[in-house]
Write a protein that binds this DNA or RNA. Sequence first.
DNA 1: CAACTGTATATTGGATCCAAAATTACCGTG
DNA 2: CACGGTAATTTTGGATCCAATATACAGTTG
Lengths: 220, 220
Amino acid sequence: MPRPPTTQEFVLDELRKAIVAGRLRPRDPIRQDTIAHRLGVSRVPLREALKTLEAEGQVVYRPHRGYSVAEMSLADLLEVYRLRELLESEAAEAAVQRFTDAELTRVTDAQHDVEEAARTGDVIAMIAANRRFHFAVLEPCGMPRLLRIVGTLWDATDAYRAVYYNSEVNRVRVCHEHEAIVGAVRRRDAAELTAALTAHRQHTVESLEGTIDTREETDP
Amino acid sequence: MPRPPTTQEFVLDELRKAIVAGRLRPRDPIRQDTIAHRLGVSRVPLREALKTLEAEGQVVYRPHRGYSVAEMSLADLLEVYRLRELLESEAAEAAVQRFTDAELTRVTDAQHDVEEAARTGDVIAMIAANRRFHFAVLEPCGMPRLLRIVGTLWDATDAYRAVYYNSEVNRVRVCHEHEAIVGAVRRRDAAELTAALTAHRQHTVESLEGTIDTREETDP
DNA sequence: CAACTGTATATTGGATCCAAAATTACCGTG
DNA sequence: CACGGTAATTTTGGATCCAATATACAGTTG
């Protein structure tokens, strides 16, 4: 029986959604009183949710100065994608030999969800489905810590992802590249899979590079 | 100017120390009231510190059931060391070409601290110095997220590390292997450095394997 | 005697209140 | 007008209180 979510879980979810949807943008300070009041909760569960996001690198915290949405430099972006390359390659190689029929179905189901969202142009839904797709591919690797780390790396670029999916050509390209990934999984071809994933990431990071804010940080 | 630590920072520090020192052992439930009272603080900063430890995987959290110290299965241990191999190799290769004199000094300083602690048999001090040594080696890689992830992987085995350093022969071996690492850094030899680090990890994980508790988890 | 139900207790989750720190606004001074 | 210092305000940090949930136990029933 599923447990009703606690308030901090609810708040954590709302904050994540606000970040991917762009309602909370990089550098935005997070006024606890404002957000808590807006969500109809007290500051306590909000602060615990923020602690989680802080550990994931989604927000930054400075004692007595509060939390703000983390921003990425170009170097940060490249580092995240380099780390994803290292870890996802490891995961993909381990996963590709282990796929069960049920796990394969999860992949194709997510693939179709992505295509559906791409057609309708629902950027938020596409981001969520795309995440499900990629983790359905990696999940069978049997390395829970690796998946958790990749998850946080994935989250780290959430604030920048919506702009990418706003472009029709990007959405089409994503779907096309997903086909190559699914094909490699079906053929149980580790080299082909890692190559397809790497190419997929490469295209994304090239597009994202343009969206990085290059203003200088002012830190008195 | 250094800022006085906040209560949650103090609590986080105390919890970490309690875990490495074995005062909090894997599977131990963490009674918030007890711990908070023992540290002379309220439950609020304790809970925020626990959230941080949860995100790092040092404790596990189940809503309404509370926090307990995370335990590792053998598979967990092997995964952690596999991930460290992937990430530390990447870091070492990037770092080895960039060492400044100051950074090299940090390495040798930490090396001497390790040797001093090994001589006196101060296990806790040796664990801390050993961590400083390894991160002094990896630090110049210029990949902050990678270092943070490696840090959490490092922390994840803290609860199991003390038993390893309790053995005189292990302490001597560590010091000896550190010499090989320092030599590789001095010669700026990336292949030699990664090999030395990998061998060093391999010896540790083999020793740690024996300390893993293999009881079954009871989860009603 | 096992399984179930209701109740008491312990423990965590969340809200409110107060204290501490930082930011801002305001002034006087040069 | 710029600058420095100080008071007022805002915001966060922490403590306490109350509510909600889970656990333990007793009693009941088949």
